[in-house]
Simulated scan of single mutants.
Amino acid sequence: MTDVNTMPGHLIRRYHQASVAIFHARVAELGYDLTPVQYAALAKIEAQPGIDQVTLAGLIAYDRTTIGGVVDRLVQKTYLVREVSATDRRARVLKLTELGVTTLHRLAPAVEEAQQTMLSGLEPGEQAEFVRLLQKATAGVNQMSRAPLKETD
């Protein structure tokens, strides 16, 4: 029987647990209560103001049925607003509030530090190679995910 400590799935789960803990610690140090998914949502909305929830879900590879809860919490925290679409009165689009923009920019250095901490067990050349291989491996199974990443057009 294979040792679980050599199984990619087990190692990825452990690495994910550590990465979330590192992210939360850095963000909490600045007095914020934000999850990695909430941060990713804010970053994508800033990059593409006026996107809808379905598009947001695809851009951060998050389940379409649960993205609503993420958006609801960000609206409650007054980081973003839902507005009626200018092109489709039935649709709602997402835009950052001034507080959302400020929060995103204040957190950016801490989030970058968190990323570096996550890679701290590797040499600099290994870090870039690890990220490249992780992107490649993730792309290879993207369509098997219940929430595949959808690239922008």
Rank of each mutant, 00 (worst) to 15 (best):
M1F: 13
M1C: 11
T2F: 14
N5S: 14
M7T: 11
P8S: 05
H10P: 01
R13K: 11
Y15V: 08
Y15C: 09
Q17C: 10
Q17R: 11
A18D: 15
V20W: 02
A21E: 10
F23S: 00
H24W: 07
R26N: 09
R26Q: 14
E29W: 08
Y32K: 05
Y32G: 00
Y32L: 03
D33W: 09
D33S: 15
T35M: 04
P36T: 05
P36L: 04
V37W: 02
A41H: 00
A41F: 02
A41M: 03
A43W: 02
K44T: 15
E46I: 06
E46S: 12
Q48W: 07
Q48H: 14
G50R: 04
I51E: 04
I51Q: 03
D52Y: 06
V54C: 10
L56F: 05
A57C: 10
A57F: 02
A57S: 11
A57D: 07
Y62E: 04
D63G: 09
R64H: 12
R64Y: 13
T66D: 10
I67T: 02
I67H: 00
G68R: 08
G69H: 10
G69R: 09
V71G: 00
D72N: 14
R73K: 14
Q76H: 11
Q76T: 13
Q76A: 15
K77D: 11
K77I: 05
K77M: 08
T78H: 13
Y79V: 03
L80N: 02
S85N: 07
R89D: 14
R90D: 14
A91N: 10
K95D: 06
K95T: 12
K95P: 03
T97F: 03
L99M: 09
T103F: 02
R106T: 10
A110V: 06
E112H: 15
E113V: 13
Q115C: 11
Q115F: 10
Q115L: 11
Q115T: 11
Q115N: 15
T117C: 06
L119C: 04
E126I: 07
A128G: 07
E129S: 10
F130C: 05
L133V: 11
L134C: 11
Q135E: 12
Q135H: 13
A137G: 09
V141N: 04
N142I: 01
Q143G: 08
M144S: 14
A147C: 09
A147Q: 04
P148I: 02
P148L: 04
P148S: 04
E151W: 08
T152V: 14
T152I: 14
